[in-house]
Amino acid sequence: MSEAYAHPNYVKIWFLLVVLLLISVAGPMLEIPVLTIITAFGIAVVKAFLVAANFMHLKFEKQIISFLLILALCLLGVFFFGVAPDIMMTDGDQWIDCIADKSCVEQRL
């Protein structure tokens, strides 16, 4: 069982999450791409923090848990930026398009 701490007002947090959900759904209706990205992903990050801090009790948890999660996210960043050039670059000295120059080994699904 967890250590004693005052539980937050969960219903209030849930209500806030629902309001944020409504804003994220309404955002794209304005048809402004930048605003859509902000309302969709910005609000997703805020909602994630609210859930993690209050429902998952991360704000009451030992700091080692936050470090563990931050480490996991940092390693995910390493993966993202490590793989990004391979997927996103389409030119360069080492770039070969084996389909275009018909040099690749035939691949079957």
Binding site: S24, P33, T36, I37, A40, F41, A48, F55, M56
Partner: peptide, 24 residues
């Protein structure tokens, strides 16, 4: 199981804008 379930909720919080809303 609550912590696990909130994580499942948290994943959906990111899947929703990615797959449904942000057609950027």
């Amino acid at each position: 199981i609550g912590i696990y379930w909130h994580f499942v909720d948290l994943v959906w919080i990111f899947l929703f804008p990615l797959l449904y809303i942000a057609n950027f």
